[in-house]
Design a protein around this nucleic acid. Structure first.
Lengths: 343, 343
DNA sequence: CTGAAAGCGCTTACAG
DNA sequence: CTGAAAGCGCTTACAG
């Protein structure tokens, strides 16, 4: 196998200077070149299969053409692929390559990873968490364009891209109200985070918008697992005047709602309508009936964050929104029906 | 903000030449340096927060310190994260950074992505598919160390890392046999691929090893979805002498098995034992009863492939196994019970 | 319109 | 034990 050709080889083959090759291959704006030599150079490059060395170019131009995605735990959710794909595609469209590092939440590893990334001269970094939460932006990232992905920080100066939890919750509750439900329960995670807070706010807001009374006994907290959901929805169902519908903080709690209904001989959706949140891959689709739920827009978030980052990379003073809320669409399946008549 | 320090700055601060700084910071083996100057240089580097420029270093040493993972469709499965994480961690442990590109199965995009990656001087590439299948290794990859991840090619010279489908199927059938089942059905995908072929082979092999008769009517093909599984298991259950246990090609078909049983008033596992394949995130765990299934070792595969690649990168003549079969462990949950007595 | 020169920031023989 | 020089492969002013 022969060594990879360098610009010098192309130049020699075409009978011009390397600098001329560079100007031609890079289509330097405002550079007038003879059509004949241009063609000669292009032919030579093609013949040799010439690919400019990106490291040399990056060194010279001070632009590496790479972005990084650093995340806490890539593998922990089935959405990782979507998030990454969205970011990678947007990067690619702008001619950038994406480097990935997963720190597993380990701060020491995070520090050395960021150092390694800086050494590689990444143009900017996407700092992502695998579920919407609050983070501190590491000091080591200072001076580099950064955007937060599915995460927020207390710092106003670093743009964040997160799901619009509140609006998502409103569409969930809204569809239930559209079906005539007046008593709608909400089961949510015990831990407060941006997701729980946002979804609760949306629940309240939509209730208010619909003129439905706020009833504190209708919201119950539990672990955000199917067992937690089962327990929480169980207490809702055992109330003297139980809700006819339940909005669950996430799809796993929604699974629990199905179980709680089943335990009491109630059918979903005839006796109890259920809406979840997340659109957890396969699960929501495979439930019986299929779970109507609010999807987390991971791919769109990844793409939006990468685009904002790219703007910052191109122009550090660019006015990118400090917070982007990405819409969470409702995925209608079979778990919502008209409210049963009061017995 | 002040410009990033270069090696020259460190050298000046320490009062030595840049080459000395380089030797010290890189701990060049067999280089004797005065302890005092070593300390002076290290202090200077620390004070300045010096990080060597990876592009310059890579240009000079001809080692970029990066690997690439190119895949067809990252986002399509919930395992993507595991696969990527395994590869990334192994790369990181060896001091390499991982670049990721998802081609969405688009060959044109794939070609330009590989070109871009080559320009960036990646040391090697992991060529991955999101489910075990046959691929053709792109010519453009020629001359670069490559290992196939969750994929195989007809070319013997490119190492592949795939799940041990056959052994996985054997443990599935084995656990069923251990529970006293003698008539074990197998429902599988209509399309033949390495996964279907391997799992079928494992089914047959284990039956033989257990001295159980091969009964062709016990294996039925359908779409590899829950509907397909329901249909296929339905025909099994409606046989004159139905199986007491079913091994499903994947977890979605196993879901169908649950449905088929339910449709007939049969309980899992009392009346029908079920074992799936994949350990599909959340689904398998959330079924009732929890689905006993064979897990796909995505993380281990990612790590194994990256390690093989790294060996090749370090020494192109290294003897890495041309095929690595990664074990698929059985995850025991609640869908297997002792075979019911013959009525 | 094209070429020669300098330089991006390192590392690596090679002197001394 | 340390420094000066060359060079990795490009691009970018600057001449001509």
């Amino acid at each position: 196998m022969t060594a990879r050709p360098r610009i010098k080889d192309v130049a020699e083959l075409a009978g011009v200077a390397p600098s001329t090759v560079s100007v031609i291959l890079n289509d330097v704006p405002g550079a007038r070149v003879n059509t004949a030599t241009r063609e000669r150079v292009q032919a030579a490059a093609r013949e040799l299969g010439y690919l400019p060395n990106g490291l040399a170019r990056g060194l010279r131009t001070r632009r590496s053409g790479t972005l990084a995605l650093v995340s806490d735990v890539i593998a922990s959710t089935p959405y990782a692929g979507q998030l990454i794909q969205g970011a990678q595609e947007a990067a690619w469209e702008a001619g950038y390559l994406l480097m990935l590092v997963d720190t597993g939440g380990d701060e020491v590893l995070e520090r050395s990873a960021i150092r390694a990334l800086r050494q590689q001269q990444v143009a900017g970094v996407l700092y992502a968490t695998m579920f919407h939460r609050l983070v501190e932006v590491p000091d080591l990232l200072a001076g580099l364009p950064v955007v937060l992905l599915d995460a927020r920080s207390s710092r106003e100066d670093v743009p964040a891209v997160v799901p619009d939890e509140e609006a998502g919750a409103r569409t969930a509750v809204g569809t239930l109200a559209d079906h005539g439900h007046r008593r709608i329960g909400f089961v949510l995670d015990r831990n407060d985070g941006p997701a729980a807070a946002g979804r609760l706010a949306g629940y309240r807001a939509e209730l208010a918008a619909r003129g439905l009374a706020w009833d504190e006994t209708l919201v119950v907290r539990a672990a955000s697992t199917s067992d937690g959901g089962q327990e929480a929805v169980g207490t809702l169902l055992d109330m003297p005047e139980p809700p006819t519908a339940v909005f669950a903080f996430n799809d796993e709690m929604a699974v629990g709602a199905y179980h709680a209904a089943e335990d009491r001989g109630l059918r979903v959706p005839e006796d109890l309508s259920v809406v979840g949140f997340d659109d957890l891959y396969v699960l929501a689709r495979e439930m019986r009936p299929g779970l109507t739920t609010v999807a987390l827009p991971h791919r769109a978030m990844g793409a939006a964050a990468a685009r904002s980052l790219l703007q910052l990379v191109t122009d550090p003073t660019a006015a990118v929104p400090s917070l982007q809320l990405i819409a969470c669409p409702l995925v209608r399946r079979g778990s919502v029906a008209a409210a049963p008549h009061r017995r």
